[in-house]
Design a protein around this nucleic acid. Sequence first.
DNA 1: TAGTAGCT
DNA 2: CAGC
Length: 211
Amino acid sequence: MDDLFAHKGTPRWTQTLAPGAVVLRGFAAESAPALMQMIDQLTRVAPFRQMTTPGGFVMSAAMSNCGSLGWVTDVQGYRYARHDPLTGLPWPAMPLLFAQLAQQAAYEAGFPDFVADACLMNRYAVGSRMSLHQDKNERDFSQPIVSVSLGLPAIFQFGGMQRSDAVQRIPLTQGDVLVWGGPSRLRFHGVQAIKAGTEDYRFNLTFRKAG
DNA sequence: TAGTAGCT
DNA sequence: CAGC
């Protein structure tokens, strides 16, 4: 059982945004270099690509997936798929480091049963953004979302249950892990346009139990 | 509305 | 620039 919690990340402090929503500051800071290297490896098999929304617009963030299910969008709609539409291959397996990090972060945030089967990898170049949306293509909303920030900093928008609700603006830097679930599971959220900095990209890992 | 543009 |  110990090996399930082999990830040694510890939050330097936590910040509660709402019931069921917490930022674990620096939780993944130590493993950030290893996580970035894994992203590089995984995206050699399943390359980053800019997907198209059902409305026909190209998303500014490039995406890929690992795990048994991957989030995809095209003109048909949003969904989870077992195979990469770009290559026809199954998504690469989720590295143990990823799975352990996600599970331990969820545990720290009060979700002890979380086992991710999907990891969406996002790559934001300078100027890339993600508009306000809900994560609602998953089967089981009792399981939280775990979001890991790497590379360039971002301003995360954390809203309410309706698009028109006011948003909190949360600065996220490398190693921060945001977890939201329970009553906050369906809150609208997004990412403001990434500003130029020391690095070329912001990377984000979003872990979900999709199936 | 997992976009964007445009106006207040 | 935030908020329609």
